[in-house]
Design a protein around this nucleic acid. Structure first.
Lengths: 245, 245
DNA sequence: CGGGCCCTTTGATTTTGATCAAGTCGCCGA
DNA sequence: TCGGCGACTTGATCAAAATCAAAGGGCCCG
């Protein structure tokens, strides 16, 4: 008890934590959480915060990356395109996810902000140095990669085997459970993606997405205002429609 | 030059390498490659080789895993099922891939041999101990996870945006490039998957897969014997049909 | 050698979602 | 206040793949 209080007080004072970091919403969940105060200071000296407006590309498919980033707030779309322009969103990232593909220079995907997004960027060289110094950091990055792998595989089941109706419900479920990080599941939220983005995420067309959303509304699974604001009266019901056991 | 030869000679003699490992085809590519002779000996003492016939389940969805494994030869299907039985193969693993989801007890997927497969199993506890002792091992596992993530995302593009024809061609391309590890791309091979498996991998039905294979044969993109043996006269042509730029 | 079984192919028909084509709605700027 | 534009919805039609149905074909086993 005594110790817990001590610890807490210290954390509140943030005596050893760089000022930029102490106020950072992503610090505990993000990759920085494993670093010692010294290392955090080192990292923070080389890091820069950026605000990105919706639609702005953070890194393009085939470009070389020289930085990694932590998402502080917002939503980032990761997508791939075929030569003829067909596009697929292969992942969504929310705060406090880590962005960037470690140990490779060339990006195999495009990262683009879906809504107003704040990120904290680190040069590749600094991250790689810290990885070699702090084994906990690589572990954290490894866990993030495994989490993304699990999510990607779940989504493959959705893409390959679910109906349009189930796909749209699955998408809404993902948003409800990820949009408010640290607050658990939201039963009311603004969609961070346009219909076109949703279509690209689900492997459908805009029209089909729109029709299925209309159907979910008529079936009282969701309520919609201004085509972007969604409320979910029963999450169980949404999950059921999404085919989630 | 001198040094290279020295190194090679030592490697051929395998003076410090446990006997079971020295003959192992997967050692260099597999996760064991980063271990010191001591650690390799340690691991080999606790490892067991198993042969798995096609269709045998290695680990079921929802079961708890207590071991990891290296694939020595063969092909393993990773799949997920919906409550109503719809199934999706979310990944194929070939030698010398590492199987198992580190840092979690419960498996989110089913792993099943597609053909006769040999694996080398390690208890979870030993791997976890070695990870804490040898940072190179976690790095190797991390890279394997990142590789699988890249592959999963590539496949999401296939599942979400390609036509049946392109999907089947993409599948054949994957097999051609992975079936003979260390030998590069094969332009003649036996399919490790039945039509039903291919359908589950591509998010299609058996009938559609069969029709598309017939079409590829008629278009001279592939030749087929006994419905399982495939030869590819021009890999470029196959890639083109698969929509791979 | 024949029969049965499983895997695969092929054919006919149906269904789901795509495509084509108008609208509607909300918002911004003149 | 009025256009105009972009995002979204709705409707009609079309096509790709699913479903339903029936054969082949290879292989094992009696």
């Amino acid at each position: 008890m005594q110790i817990v209080n001590e610890h807490r007080r210290k954390d509140i004072h943030n005596s050893d934590i760089p000022t930029v970091c102490s106020a950072c919403e992503a610090r505990h969940g993000g990759v920085c959480g494993t670093l010692s105060p010294d290392q955090l200071l080192d990292l923070s000296r080389h890091s820069t915060r950026r605000s990105i407006e919706p639609g702005r590309e953070v890194i393009g498919q085939g470009e070389t990356t020289d930085s990694y980033a932590n998402i502080i707030s917002g939503v980032v779309k990761l997508s791939k395109v075929l030569a003829d322009g067909r596009q697929q969103i292969v992942g969504l990232q929310f705060a406090p996810d880590f962005m960037g593909r470690p140990f490779t220079r060339e990006s195999a995907l495009t990262a683009e902000a879906a809504v107003d997004t704040d990120i904290c960027c680190f040069p590749r060289t600094v991250i790689e140095r810290l990885v070699s110094e702090a084994p906990g950091l690589e572990h954290r990055l490894h866990e993030q990669a495994l989490k993304e792998l699990d999510e990607a595989r779940d989504w493959m089941l959705t893409l390959g085997r679910k109906t349009a109706q189930e796909k749209v419900a699955s998408f809404l479920y993902i948003i409800a459970t990820h949009i408010a990080p640290e607050k658990g599941t939201a039963n009311e939220f603004d969609l961070p993606l346009s219909r076109a983005d949703i279509a690209d995420y689900l492997g459908l067309t805009i029209e089909t997405v729109s029709r299925q959303i209309t159907k979910l509304r008529k079936d009282n699974v969701i309520r919609i205002e201004n085509s972007r604001h969604v409320s979910v009266p029963s999450l169980d019901r949404l999950m059921h429609v999404a085919g989630i056991d």
